[in-house]
Design a binder for these strands. Structure first.
Lengths: 338, 338
DNA sequence: TTGTAAGCGTTATCAC
DNA sequence: GTGATAACGCTTACAA
């Protein structure tokens, strides 16, 4: 260390000054700090990692979600939240995009086995995820965005309260005077769909309303066409006067269908996608706060890495209803019509 | 090294096997490789960095462009291109988001001074950029997306050929039979605007047409409102029969204006934004290929880091015209009407 | 063809 | 309070 020479002390003393050790005299601290300033000294990250056995770096595995990248701001927003949070604690972020799941695992392994990172964040939680599978077999802390299966016992996770979010949405619609709010969801075996459907039902119950199965449609996918078909079916067998959709794309499909049929109902979607925000009529939607999801995932992970002994291994992030044209005016209905 | 023990050789031999040194017998290579396999050995990145004096990591500085993140897929696409390219050469990527320019410089310095990275990629090139200013004063290779000022002599850069892209756009419009194509641009002192305007003029000249200054409008900004005003002005003082816009948002404003006035002209924008792709009528636009820009930036930088002695310090990335509804049908006009 | 030993820049342990 | 010294895991002369 040149700093050591310049200030006439040993390297160990310099190290102690860096860590502001209490057993170093103020005088030498001054001197050493001046030398550091003068030489523009900054500690070498590799040397530190080597001796400390930690990198203060987090690895991000980003899935191969082609189009989603273009139309959904989710990933970039989450990456931003992660970055901002990590900075607060002096952590760095490494990321890599993959083309398929085996490649994801490959990069994951590289990060871990070569000691590039101390912990991992997975941007999505999937069923039978090979990354989680791998991570469960190791001792590397990791966090997931989404609620993982119970068998992934080591996972830290962040998620929205999908039940509550949908409960609030439906309550909002009902309290504006609507009587026959339909539920339009995606794949029925996905946990988001199930949770949101539960929220829908509970809201109806709370309002003293019966559940009409004809008002519930779960599509085989999340495309606009699925929403379109769903709406067609719903109209065919019941008389909805509003739609709570578990996804924006489904909601957009439903709107398309209504347009064709020449009428419009209040609609609320989920995920606050760009398409919903732009298309006319602009779609009211529940924002899942990707930035917060990212930030909290990073927070949980870093706390664990820093050895904070908290028993919580998850965090629920509040959603936010963005009201746009598809619910414009329905607040007027709050005033009971007599 | 446990591998060394297990295979009964010295650590240096193991190291040589890793690097496939020609001076190691095939027999020992076999043995050592088996041992590595057996123990699941992978070299420690920090130790390597320390001894080699390089990290094989690239740092990404992402600017504070608030809304752009939501509406423009540019950043995430570029980050993806960078990641994919870096993987090919065994490089890692670190990134950090910043809230303002001073913060950008702060993170930049941290990356460099603590030896976290070997090189830097700046996602945008701005005038009087403090990051570039800093980098010019150091010996760290860096690449920029966009064409930097001449005084940033050390910068590697990638950019589209904005002159050519606009030349092609206008040629396309003219050859479809249009006679009075208007130019709608942003801030006139920005190089993109100037280059694209030059392309516009050159295309007219090539077609033997005079340049009518009344058909040229450069707005004070890049918002939709600027495009709206621009179109209004253009209509007021000339009779355009088509619009070549240097930006999608301007083009969208122009379309809004036309809609109000009850007519429509062929329009082509730039940057292939999501809004243009979604709004009706969908906007034809020149895609600047953010993924390619990112990939090529990474490529240039890594080549330099690996010591390849090439004299090229830049790369031009081809644009791609995405034809949508605002130019639907104009190809018919290719057939000369008699 | 392989081994020995020094060194990369830090931190931690022990001494004084 | 401060300084030696070893160690982290790897690479690379230099020896053999």
């Amino acid at each position: 260390m040149d700093v050591a020479k310049l200030s006439g002390v040993s390297p160990s003393t310099v190290s102690r000054v860096i860590h502001d050790s209490s057993r170093i005299s103020d005088a030498t601290k001054q001197r050493v700090r001046q030398a550091m300033e003068h030489l523009g000294y900054h500690p070498n990250a590799a040397a530190r990692s080597l001796v400390r056995g930690e990198t203060r770096t987090i690895g991000l595995i980003i899935p191969n979600s082609e189009d989603d990248l273009f139309f959904r701001p989710f990933f970039i927003m989450a990456m931003r939240g992660i970055s901002i949070e990590a900075q607060k604690h002096g952590y760095n972020i490494m990321y890599s995009f993959s083309n398929n799941e085996p490649e994801e695992v490959e990069f994951l392994k590289k990060y871990i086995l070569r000691n590039h990172v101390d912990g991992i964040i997975l941007m999505v939680s999937r069923e039978n995820d090979r990354c989680m599978e791998y991570l469960e077999g190791r001792d590397v802390p990791y966090a997931v965005i989404g609620h993982p299966d119970n068998r992934y016992a080591k996972a830290l996770w962040v998620d929205n309260d999908n039940f509550m979010a949908m409960y609030d949405v439906v309550t909002r619609l009902l309290s504006s005077g609507l009587q026959r709010v339909a539920f339009l969801g995606g794949l029925p075996d996905m946990s988001v769909t199930r949770d949101r459907l539960r929220g829908y039902k509970e809201a109806l119950r709370t309002h003293g309303m019966d559940i009409d199965e004809d008002l519930i449609y779960t599509a085989p996918g999340f495309q606009e066409s699925d929403g379109y078909e769903g709406m067609k079916t719903l109209i065919g067998r019941s008389h909805p006067d509003g739609v709570a959709s578990a996804d924006d794309l489904l909601a957009l499909g439903a709107l398309e269908c209504m347009k064709e049929q020449g009428f419009s109902l209040p609609v609320i979607g989920f995920n606050n996608t760009i398409k919903g925000a732009i298309k006319s009529p602009t779609l009211s939607s529940v924002d899942i706060r990707p930035d917060q999801l990212g930030a909290k995932a990073a927070d949980l992970l870093i706390k664990k890495l820093m050895g904070e002994e908290t028993s919580v291994n998850f965090c629920i992030v509040d959603t936010q209803l963005i009201e746009r044209e598809t619910t414009a005016g329905i607040s007027f209905l709050n005033i009971p019509r007599t």
